[in-house]
């Protein structure tokens, strides 16, 4: 028992030190085919500008302003200055992978930014590197348009069926063995439900849908499906489905309460206050009348 504990401790120490070493070395293990991935969007000043907007909102709090060396030193590992050598020596594929998957303190932006926007971010990062020459991907983004989604819901077993096909001139092509994720659209982002799935040989994946997800007044939920395919790229599809719980909660200021506006103050308070003021008014009238009578009697 004692020895076993020691063993656990030692292996923990080794693991931890390995991890910190790795963190120190900032070694990302990126699969070779992803390392070689390149953008199909040409990097221009306009894509860089769009990337900058995204950067300012989502990246600057940790990475600081590129080239200024003001990244957040309190984090471990310290987020690199993205204009720096370490970052700029990476391939576009490396950067795309890092942004997409994240690790440790670096969040994954896979569900946050569509592929295009991730590339635009890289466009912005590259704008700090004068030596950089872009290698364009031969991928044709127009192919994404060929992809068709068919999403249905089975209310009995609460399964969402997503079928993905592409309509090539040669006929229908089933997108098999592709990763598919589905989300419910929420006010600030996408809520993923169930796990990511791989399409079967018919290009179909099933997702368990929660029975208690609030929808709009009628129960509608905006469902977003996304498939990632080698030939067709990242394709997203949004549709409105009546699969949520109808939700129509009243505003939080409906009830009469001490804290509400005057028109919604408690009845008893309105009655007491108004009758108090009324009584005071009548009382003052009585006193005024008495004074008037005294004066009148005196003049007689």
């Amino acid at each position: 028992m004692f020895k076993k504990n020691i063993g656990i401790k030692i292996s923990t120490i080794i693991l931890v030190s390995l991890f910190s070493l790795q963190a120190f070395a900032q070694a990302w293990t990126i699969p070779a085919e992803l390392k070689a991935k390149t953008s199909y969007i040409p990097f221009t000043s306009s894509t860089s500008k769009e990337g900058e907007d995204t950067y300012t909102k989502n990246c600057m709090s940790c990475h600081g302003n590129p080239g200024k060396g003001n990244s957040m030193k309190a984090l471990n590992p310290i987020p690199p200055d993205l204009a720096g050598k370490v970052t700029q020596q990476r391939t576009d594929g490396d950067l795309f992978y890092i942004i997409t998957t994240g690790r440790g303190v670096m969040p994954s932006f896979k569900d946050v930014f569509p592929e295009q926007e991730r590339w635009k971010l890289i466009s912005y990062i590259r704008s700090f590197n004068r030596q950089y020459v872009q290698v364009l991907s031969t991928f044709n983004p127009q192919k994404a348009k060929l992809v068709k989604f068919d999403i249905t819901y089975n209310a009995v077993n609460h399964l969402v069926r997503v079928a993905v096909k592409a309509t090539e001139k040669t006929g229908m092509v089933v997108l098999k063995n592709d990763s598919v994720d589905i989300y419910a659209k929420r006010y600030f982002g996408r809520l993923q439900f169930d796990n990511g799935m791989i399409t079967d040989k018919d290009g179909i994946a099933y997702f368990k849908f929660p029975t208690d997800l609030p929808g709009d007044k009628a129960g509608n939920v905006e469902v977003i499906a996304r498939v990632t395919d080698d030939n067709y790229g990242e394709v997203t599809y949004q549709t409105r489905m009546k699969i949520g719980v109808p939700t129509d909660k009243p505003g939080l200021t409906e009830q009469r309460a001490i804290w509400n506006v005057v028109s919604k103050s408690p009845i008893w308070l309105v009655v007491v206050f108004t009758s108090g003021i009324l009584f005071l008014g009548l009382f003052l009238l009585y006193i005024g009348f008495s004074l008037w009578k005294i004066r009148k009697i005196g003049t007689l």
């Binding site: 989502n58 946050v112 600030f188 609030p214």
Partner: peptide, 13 residues
């Protein structure tokens, strides 16, 4: 009402 919250850093909902 949507039963969803989004993390400000990771943007995950």
């Amino acid at each position: 009402n949507e039963d969803a919250v989004t993390n400000g850093t990771t943007k995950v909902t």
